[in-house]
Write a protein that binds this DNA or RNA. Structure first.
Lengths: 226, 226
DNA sequence: GGTTATGTTCATATTGAGTTCATACAGTTG
DNA sequence: CAACTGTATGAACTCAATATGAACATAACC
């Protein structure tokens, strides 16, 4: 899950951006000023920065350069200035893309995704399991013939998680922490039940994968074909 | 109906682009080389140009500049080169957006639409749902037989939004942000009520679509026929 | 002003995803 | 091959999320 740092003094805009990016399965961290953004980036550099160039008492261009020194990540600029001169200056400094206010948040999301893709930052909305495709946008499982299957949320998340790292072992705790949240208080056996349901759901489809139990350890998904 | 000129030496790519743009209600004119593109533009300048920068025996950048002299329309560049230097050059010449080959034609269509919107080029916003057509200009829903149905604004916006991205999941938050505005303070359940009204409104018409609930997630519109 | 159309809120009914539980089964170990 | 431990499974149960009907509020219209 890629992490995007959004730097803007306007909390409304930050929230707007967060909403749209999170819908795309992108983690969003918000900072309201350059100092906080720099401090955060020093410790935990994000994968990409969305930066409003016009913030009070701050040189956005300098901030951009400093951020890139720290993390060397792509930066998408937001600017209210539409003058070509400014845009060019931004690009010279190494901005990777820009948007002019007021912008369509959907377009922002599209551009962020395009940047992540261009910079090959691990990010995929979809997971492929043989002929199956898990689409996180629609929570659909689609097979090659276009047959669709809608899974309940937990089942989908579980299969998606397992399928994201085929062959890798996941302990119940790990799965619970990822899907149910770190503060889940319920029974570990719940995972078993969802695994069971996934298994029987894909039993007839002479599957492209199977979920293997590692006794005493957890589960692992194995893909047959590719 | 906006008109877009597509300039590329590869007829396959031109066709691909045409297909996707026409689906969006955009008229497409194709030219295979710069000379033809210039000649056409002199007489009937299009609203926007999609231009492949890498064509044999031709300086794409010069062509871009010449086209803009003639019509001063936005230009979307397609390029196989990903180097920053080239991108900057493109932007200096006044390119408004660009895509790197190989590109997702859907994304191209999205960007073209965004550009048209940004440049306030009249663009009838319609969405097709099977035999239904949602016309955002009149807030009318028209079926194949020409029967019209005027929806209340919120219902229309909701159906329009869902129908713009069929199959895609929309959270309530997302829908509220888009339709009611980011600072809407009201109840999330309001969305449910409008969904319900849409459902019963189109219940009898053995519909072209249906709105599916994804429990815990949101809603999704599914189209049956096309 | 009266009337209708639209939008929102609220109370209640309904659903089904998620969880728990009891039991059966399977793998492991001495 | 017991005895034990971990997992599978079917079914019951729970409860939050959604659907729904209706009241209410507000804007548009005549």
């Amino acid at each position: 899950m890629p992490k995007v740092l959004v730097v803007d003094d306007d909390a409304n805009i930050r929230e707007l951006v967060r909403l749209y990016l999170e819908d795309e399965g992108i983690e969003v961290v918000q900072k309201g000023n350059g100092a906080e953004a720099l401090e955060y980036t020093e410790n935990q550099p994000p994968d990409l920065v969305v930066l409003d160039i016009m913030m009070p008492g701050m040189d956005g261009w300098a901030l951009c350069a400093r951020l890139r020194e720290l993390g060397d990540m792509p930066v998408l600029m937001i600017t209210a200035k539409g003058e070509p001169a400014d845009r060019i200056k931004g690009f010279k400094l190494g901005t990777d893309d820009y948007l002019v206010k007021p912008f369509d948040p959907m377009e922002l999301a599209l551009r962020v995704k395009a940047l992540l893709k261009r910079y090959r930052i691990a990010y995929s909305q979809t997971v492929r399991l043989g002929d199956l495709r898990l689409d996180r946008k629609s929570y659909h499982v689609v097979n090659k013939d276009g047959l669709e299957l809608t899974l309940p949320m937990k089942e989908f998340e579980l299969l998606y998680k397992l399928g994201s790292y085929p062959g890798q072992l996941f302990t119940r705790n790990h799965l619970i922490a990822e899907i149910w949240g770190i503060d889940y208080e319920g029974d570990e056996r719940t995972v078993d039940v969802h695994i069971k349901r996934l298994r029987e759901r894909f039993a007839g489809h002479d599957s492209d994968f199977r979920i293997v139990t590692l006794r005493g350890l957890g589960y692992r998904l194995e893909v047959y074909r590719d």
